[in-house]
Protein backbone atom coordinates (compact mmCIF):
# COMPACT_ATOMS: atom_id res chain seq x y z
CA UNK A 1 0.00 0.00 0.00
CA UNK A 2 0.96 3.62 -0.33
CA UNK A 3 2.08 4.07 3.22
CA UNK A 4 4.70 1.38 3.01
CA UNK A 5 6.76 3.32 0.53
CA UNK A 6 6.61 6.49 2.59
CA UNK A 7 10.10 7.50 3.62
CA UNK A 8 11.71 6.19 6.74
CA UNK A 9 11.48 9.35 8.77
CA UNK A 10 8.72 9.12 11.34
CA UNK A 11 6.98 12.37 10.52
CA UNK A 12 6.52 11.68 6.85
CA UNK A 13 5.37 8.14 7.53
CA UNK A 14 2.64 9.60 9.65
CA UNK A 15 1.58 12.16 7.07
CA UNK A 16 1.73 9.46 4.42
CA UNK A 17 -0.45 7.22 6.53
CA UNK A 18 -2.86 10.03 7.17
CA UNK A 19 -3.12 10.83 3.48
CA UNK A 20 -3.70 7.17 2.81
CA UNK A 21 -6.45 7.04 5.41
CA UNK A 22 -7.96 10.23 4.08
CA UNK A 23 -7.99 9.21 0.44
CA UNK A 24 -11.17 10.44 -1.22
CA UNK A 25 -11.45 7.30 -3.31
CA UNK A 26 -10.05 4.33 -1.43
CA UNK A 27 -8.07 2.04 -3.67
CA UNK A 28 -8.98 -1.19 -1.97
CA UNK A 29 -11.53 -2.69 0.31
CA UNK A 30 -8.96 -2.85 3.03
CA UNK A 31 -8.14 0.80 2.75
CA UNK A 32 -11.82 1.71 2.78
CA UNK A 33 -12.31 -0.19 6.01
CA UNK A 34 -9.23 1.28 7.63
CA UNK A 35 -10.27 4.79 6.76
CA UNK A 36 -13.81 4.18 7.99
CA UNK A 37 -12.37 3.14 11.33
CA UNK A 38 -10.03 6.10 11.34
CA UNK A 39 -12.88 8.52 10.73
CA UNK A 40 -15.01 6.86 13.34
CA UNK A 41 -12.17 7.34 15.75
CA UNK A 42 -11.80 11.01 14.83
CA UNK A 43 -15.48 11.56 15.47
CA UNK A 44 -15.38 9.65 18.74
CA UNK A 45 -12.32 11.61 19.81
CA UNK A 46 -14.15 14.87 19.44
CA UNK A 47 -16.52 13.80 22.22
CA UNK A 48 -14.46 14.74 25.27
CA UNK A 49 -16.54 12.93 27.86
CA UNK A 50 -16.64 9.68 25.94
CA UNK A 51 -12.91 9.89 25.52
CA UNK A 52 -12.56 10.37 29.26
CA UNK A 53 -14.65 7.25 29.82
CA UNK A 54 -12.50 5.29 27.43
CA UNK A 55 -9.30 6.49 29.10
CA UNK A 56 -10.56 5.46 32.52
CA UNK A 57 -11.38 2.00 31.21
CA UNK A 58 -8.02 1.65 29.53
CA UNK A 59 -6.41 2.65 32.79
CA UNK A 60 -8.49 0.01 34.55
CA UNK A 61 -7.29 -2.65 32.14
CA UNK A 62 -3.68 -1.59 32.57
CA UNK A 63 -4.03 -1.59 36.34
CA UNK A 64 -5.50 -5.06 36.23
CA UNK A 65 -2.72 -6.37 34.00
CA UNK A 66 0.09 -4.84 35.99
CA UNK A 67 -1.45 -5.35 39.43
CA UNK A 68 1.55 -7.22 40.86
CA UNK A 69 3.88 -4.41 39.83
CA UNK A 70 1.64 -1.59 40.93
CA UNK A 71 0.46 -2.73 44.30
CA UNK A 72 2.78 -1.85 47.17
CA UNK A 73 1.78 -4.83 49.33
CA UNK A 74 0.36 -8.28 49.01
CA UNK A 75 -3.42 -7.90 49.11
CA UNK A 76 -3.88 -10.98 51.25
CA UNK A 77 -1.21 -10.47 53.92
CA UNK A 78 -2.83 -9.68 57.21
CA UNK A 79 -1.19 -7.62 59.88
CA UNK A 80 -3.48 -7.26 62.82
CA UNK A 81 -1.24 -4.77 64.56
CA UNK A 82 -1.76 -2.37 61.66
CA UNK A 83 -5.51 -2.71 61.35
CA UNK A 84 -7.66 0.24 60.28
CA UNK A 85 -4.82 2.64 59.67
CA UNK A 86 -6.08 5.99 58.31
CA UNK A 87 -5.36 7.24 54.81
CA UNK A 88 -1.91 8.55 54.16
CA UNK A 89 -0.26 6.59 56.93
CA UNK A 90 3.23 5.40 56.20
CA UNK A 91 3.44 2.65 53.61
CA UNK A 92 -0.33 2.51 53.26
CA UNK A 93 -1.51 5.32 51.02
CA UNK A 94 -5.19 4.52 51.45
CA UNK A 95 -4.85 2.97 54.87
CA UNK A 96 -5.63 -0.60 55.88
CA UNK A 97 -8.76 -2.59 56.50
CA UNK A 98 -9.98 -4.42 59.57
CA UNK A 99 -7.43 -7.20 59.12
CA UNK A 100 -4.56 -4.83 58.43
CA UNK A 101 -4.43 -5.52 54.70
CA UNK A 102 -3.32 -2.65 52.46
CA UNK A 103 -6.45 -1.09 50.91
CA UNK A 104 -4.73 0.29 47.83
CA UNK A 105 -3.30 -3.11 46.94
CA UNK A 106 -6.64 -4.74 47.47
CA UNK A 107 -8.36 -2.26 45.23
CA UNK A 108 -5.75 -2.75 42.52
CA UNK A 109 -6.26 -6.48 42.61
CA UNK A 110 -10.00 -5.91 42.77
CA UNK A 111 -9.80 -4.35 39.30
CA UNK A 112 -9.00 -7.81 37.97
CA UNK A 113 -12.13 -9.28 39.45
CA UNK A 114 -14.28 -6.44 38.20
CA UNK A 115 -12.89 -6.80 34.71
CA UNK A 116 -13.38 -10.52 34.83
CA UNK A 117 -17.03 -10.07 35.70
CA UNK A 118 -17.55 -7.40 33.07
CA UNK A 119 -15.85 -9.37 30.35
CA UNK A 120 -17.75 -12.57 31.08
CA UNK A 121 -21.12 -10.93 31.32
CA UNK A 122 -20.44 -8.89 28.20
CA UNK A 123 -19.57 -12.08 26.36
CA UNK A 124 -22.52 -14.13 27.46
CA UNK A 125 -25.53 -11.88 27.87
CA UNK A 126 -25.60 -9.84 24.65
CA UNK A 127 -24.59 -12.74 22.45
CA UNK A 128 -27.35 -14.88 23.91
CA UNK A 129 -29.80 -12.01 23.65
CA UNK A 130 -28.86 -11.20 20.08
CA UNK A 131 -29.14 -14.81 19.03
CA UNK A 132 -32.49 -15.41 20.65
CA UNK A 133 -33.95 -12.07 19.59
CA UNK A 134 -32.94 -12.09 15.96
CA UNK A 135 -33.80 -15.72 15.39
CA UNK A 136 -37.20 -15.25 17.01
CA UNK A 137 -37.85 -12.05 15.11
CA UNK A 138 -36.70 -13.29 11.75
CA UNK A 139 -38.22 -16.75 11.73
CA UNK A 140 -41.44 -15.74 13.47
CA UNK A 141 -44.22 -18.23 14.00
CA UNK A 142 -43.66 -21.00 16.52
CA UNK A 143 -40.00 -20.28 17.09
CA UNK A 144 -40.89 -16.75 17.97
CA UNK A 145 -43.62 -17.74 20.40
CA UNK A 146 -41.50 -20.27 22.25
CA UNK A 147 -38.39 -18.11 22.49
CA UNK A 148 -40.28 -15.04 23.56
CA UNK A 149 -42.28 -16.82 26.26
CA UNK A 150 -38.96 -18.06 27.60
CA UNK A 151 -37.66 -14.53 27.60
CA UNK A 152 -40.76 -13.33 29.38
CA UNK A 153 -40.22 -15.86 32.14
CA UNK A 154 -36.75 -14.54 32.76
CA UNK A 155 -37.93 -10.96 32.52
CA UNK A 156 -40.63 -11.51 35.09
CA UNK A 157 -38.18 -11.75 37.98
CA UNK A 158 -36.21 -8.86 39.38
CA UNK A 159 -32.58 -9.27 38.47
CA UNK A 160 -31.04 -9.46 41.91
CA UNK A 161 -33.67 -11.84 43.22
CA UNK A 162 -33.17 -14.21 40.32
CA UNK A 163 -29.41 -13.98 40.69
CA UNK A 164 -29.80 -14.74 44.38
CA UNK A 165 -31.83 -17.80 43.56
CA UNK A 166 -29.21 -18.99 41.10
CA UNK A 167 -26.37 -18.44 43.48
CA UNK A 168 -28.28 -20.14 46.24
CA UNK A 169 -28.78 -23.13 43.97
CA UNK A 170 -25.32 -23.23 42.45
CA UNK A 171 -23.37 -22.19 45.50
CA UNK A 172 -21.64 -18.92 46.23
CA UNK A 173 -18.61 -17.92 44.23
CA UNK A 174 -17.53 -15.44 41.63
CA UNK A 175 -18.17 -17.68 38.59
CA UNK A 176 -21.64 -18.51 39.73
CA UNK A 177 -22.33 -14.88 40.43
CA UNK A 178 -21.25 -13.99 36.92
CA UNK A 179 -23.34 -16.77 35.45
CA UNK A 180 -26.33 -15.64 37.46
CA UNK A 181 -25.93 -12.05 36.35
CA UNK A 182 -25.49 -13.05 32.73
CA UNK A 183 -28.54 -15.26 32.84
CA UNK A 184 -30.61 -12.43 34.19
CA UNK A 185 -29.14 -9.83 31.84
CA UNK A 186 -29.89 -11.29 28.42
CA UNK A 187 -33.70 -11.02 28.17
CA UNK A 188 -33.79 -7.25 27.61
CA UNK A 189 -31.24 -7.64 24.84
CA UNK A 190 -33.34 -10.31 23.23
CA UNK A 191 -36.31 -7.98 23.38
CA UNK A 192 -34.44 -5.13 21.74
CA UNK A 193 -32.95 -7.38 19.09
CA UNK A 194 -36.32 -8.87 18.27
CA UNK A 195 -38.04 -5.51 18.00
CA UNK A 196 -35.37 -4.26 15.63
CA UNK A 197 -35.48 -7.46 13.62
CA UNK A 198 -39.20 -7.10 13.11
CA UNK A 199 -38.82 -3.72 11.47
CA UNK A 200 -35.81 -4.83 9.44
CA UNK A 201 -37.29 -8.13 8.30
CA UNK A 202 -39.91 -6.70 5.98
CA UNK A 203 -37.66 -4.12 4.37
CA UNK A 204 -36.71 -4.21 0.73
CA UNK A 205 -33.01 -4.60 1.34
CA UNK A 206 -33.63 -7.90 3.08
CA UNK A 207 -35.91 -8.95 0.23
CA UNK A 208 -33.10 -8.01 -2.12
CA UNK A 209 -30.60 -10.40 -0.55
CA UNK A 210 -33.22 -13.10 -0.46
CA UNK A 211 -33.39 -12.66 -4.21
CA UNK A 212 -29.69 -13.47 -4.36
CA UNK A 213 -30.49 -16.84 -2.80
CA UNK A 214 -29.12 -16.02 0.64
CA UNK A 215 -30.34 -18.30 3.42
CA UNK A 216 -31.77 -17.35 6.79
CA UNK A 217 -28.47 -17.84 8.57
CA UNK A 218 -26.61 -15.48 6.30
CA UNK A 219 -29.34 -12.88 6.42
CA UNK A 220 -29.46 -12.93 10.20
CA UNK A 221 -25.72 -12.81 10.71
CA UNK A 222 -24.63 -10.49 7.93
CA UNK A 223 -27.62 -8.26 7.46
CA UNK A 224 -29.62 -8.14 10.64
CA UNK A 225 -26.89 -8.33 13.24
CA UNK A 226 -24.97 -5.30 12.04
CA UNK A 227 -28.11 -3.24 12.48
CA UNK A 228 -28.89 -4.57 15.95
CA UNK A 229 -25.37 -4.64 17.28
CA UNK A 230 -25.06 -0.87 17.34
CA UNK A 231 -27.93 -0.40 19.72
CA UNK A 232 -26.90 -3.45 21.73
CA UNK A 233 -23.35 -2.20 22.28
CA UNK A 234 -24.77 1.05 23.51
CA UNK A 235 -27.19 -0.75 25.79
CA UNK A 236 -24.45 -2.97 27.19
CA UNK A 237 -22.06 -0.18 28.00
CA UNK A 238 -24.89 1.66 29.67
CA UNK A 239 -25.89 -1.51 31.53
CA UNK A 240 -22.35 -2.29 32.55
CA UNK A 241 -22.60 0.07 35.48
CA UNK A 242 -25.62 -1.86 36.69
CA UNK A 243 -23.84 -5.16 36.20
CA UNK A 244 -20.85 -4.06 38.24
CA UNK A 245 -23.22 -2.88 40.90
CA UNK A 246 -25.09 -6.19 40.83
CA UNK A 247 -21.83 -8.08 41.20
CA UNK A 248 -20.86 -5.78 44.02
CA UNK A 249 -24.27 -6.28 45.53
CA UNK A 250 -23.86 -10.03 45.45
CA UNK A 251 -20.41 -9.61 46.95
CA UNK A 252 -21.87 -7.34 49.57
CA UNK A 253 -24.45 -9.97 50.47
CA UNK A 254 -21.68 -12.54 50.72
CA UNK A 255 -22.94 -14.46 47.70
CA UNK A 256 -20.37 -13.37 45.17
CA UNK A 257 -16.66 -13.39 45.67
CA UNK A 258 -15.58 -15.30 48.77
CA UNK A 259 -14.10 -13.32 51.65
CA UNK A 260 -10.38 -13.11 51.17
CA UNK A 261 -10.65 -12.13 47.54
CA UNK A 262 -10.54 -8.36 47.10
CA UNK A 263 -13.80 -7.85 45.29
CA UNK A 264 -14.96 -4.25 45.60
CA UNK A 265 -18.48 -5.06 46.73
CA UNK A 266 -17.26 -7.47 49.35
CA UNK A 267 -14.81 -4.83 50.53
CA UNK A 268 -17.61 -2.36 51.05
CA UNK A 269 -19.54 -4.97 53.01
CA UNK A 270 -16.51 -5.50 55.12
CA UNK A 271 -15.94 -1.80 55.72
CA UNK A 272 -19.55 -1.12 56.50
CA UNK A 273 -19.09 -2.13 60.11
CA UNK A 274 -16.65 0.71 60.68
CA UNK A 275 -18.27 3.29 58.45
CA UNK A 276 -18.64 5.87 61.21
CA UNK A 277 -15.13 5.77 62.66
CA UNK A 278 -13.14 4.54 59.68
CA UNK A 279 -15.09 5.82 56.70
CA UNK A 280 -12.37 5.24 54.10
CA UNK A 281 -12.50 1.48 54.37
CA UNK A 282 -15.91 1.39 52.73
CA UNK A 283 -15.67 4.62 50.75
CA UNK A 284 -12.59 3.87 48.67
CA UNK A 285 -13.94 0.74 46.95
CA UNK A 286 -17.23 2.59 46.59
CA UNK A 287 -15.45 5.36 44.76
CA UNK A 288 -13.79 2.82 42.50
CA UNK A 289 -17.14 1.27 41.59
CA UNK A 290 -18.55 4.70 40.99
CA UNK A 291 -15.70 5.74 38.72
CA UNK A 292 -15.80 2.62 36.59
CA UNK A 293 -19.58 2.72 36.27
CA UNK A 294 -19.40 6.35 35.25
CA UNK A 295 -16.71 5.56 32.71
CA UNK A 296 -18.93 2.92 31.12
CA UNK A 297 -21.84 5.32 30.98
CA UNK A 298 -19.77 8.03 29.33
CA UNK A 299 -18.42 5.57 26.81
CA UNK A 300 -21.91 4.30 26.11
CA UNK A 301 -23.18 7.78 25.38
CA UNK A 302 -20.30 8.43 23.04
CA UNK A 303 -20.83 5.15 21.23
CA UNK A 304 -24.49 5.89 20.84
CA UNK A 305 -23.73 9.08 18.95
CA UNK A 306 -21.25 7.22 16.82
CA UNK A 307 -23.13 4.02 16.09
CA UNK A 308 -26.75 4.97 15.98
CA UNK A 309 -27.70 4.78 12.30
CA UNK A 310 -30.42 7.33 12.87
CA UNK A 311 -27.94 9.98 13.91
CA UNK A 312 -26.02 9.55 10.70
CA UNK A 313 -28.55 11.14 8.44
CA UNK A 314 -30.26 9.13 5.81
Amino acid sequence: MNNSNASASGASTITGLRAWLNAEVPGSRWQARASAWYHGWLEFKSNRLALLGLLILIALVLIAIFAPLLSPHDPYTQNLSNRLLPMGSEGHLLGTDSLGRDLLSRMIYGARITLYIVALVALIAPVAGLLVGTVAGYLGGWTDTVLMRLTDIFLAFPRLVLALAFVAALGAGIENAVLAIALTAWPPYARIARAETLTIRSSDYISAVKLQGAGAFRIIVKHIWPLCIASLIVRITLDMAGIILAAAGLGFLGLGARPPSPEWGAMIADGRRFILDHWWVATMPGLAIFTVSLAFNLLGDGLRDLLDPKSQGK
Binding site: S203, D204, Y205, A208, H223, L227, P309, K314
Partner: peptide, 14 residues
Protein backbone atom coordinates in the same frame (compact mmCIF):
# COMPACT_ATOMS: atom_id res chain seq x y z
CA UNK B 1 -35.67 -7.69 -9.54
CA UNK B 2 -35.12 -3.96 -9.10
CA UNK B 3 -37.22 -2.60 -6.26
CA UNK B 4 -39.45 0.39 -6.44
CA UNK B 5 -38.06 2.48 -3.62
CA UNK B 6 -34.33 3.17 -3.88
CA UNK B 7 -34.32 4.45 -0.33
CA UNK B 8 -35.48 1.15 1.10
CA UNK B 9 -33.66 -1.29 -1.11
CA UNK B 10 -30.09 -0.76 0.09
CA UNK B 11 -28.79 -1.94 3.44
CA UNK B 12 -27.96 1.21 5.42
CA UNK B 13 -24.70 -0.18 6.76
CA UNK B 14 -23.33 -1.83 3.66
Amino acid sequence: MVFQDPYASLHPRH
